[in-house]
Amino acid sequence: MDTTWYLVLSALLFATGAGGVLIRRSPLVILLCLELMLNSANLALLAFGRNLGNADAQIFAMVVMVVAACEVVVGLGLIVAMYRRRIPLDVDENRGLRG
């Protein structure tokens, strides 16, 4: 398969994730959409690495996975803390920093 196919698929997945971040209100689903965006970036990285015949891109993809895991752990910890303190789990309700 041509590399272009992988790149267009990656762009489509990234746009889907971005649309999800814009349209959903539950912080849990917004975290899931961030996962979609990070994974689409991984797909593009691996496609370019295959295209250039260079395995460095795979290390880059692994580091992206590590960062995604950290983001999930901290984000889910925040959601659990919000739930414990009875803060509504809705990103539109928590607008105290809006000014």
Partner: peptide, 15 residues
């Protein structure tokens, strides 16, 4: 980074 994130999650979610 993973270690810091794990400690941070425990601190955030602890009762």
């Amino acid at each position: 980074l993973l270690l810091i994130a794990a400690v941070g999650a425990v601190v955030l979610a602890a009762r």
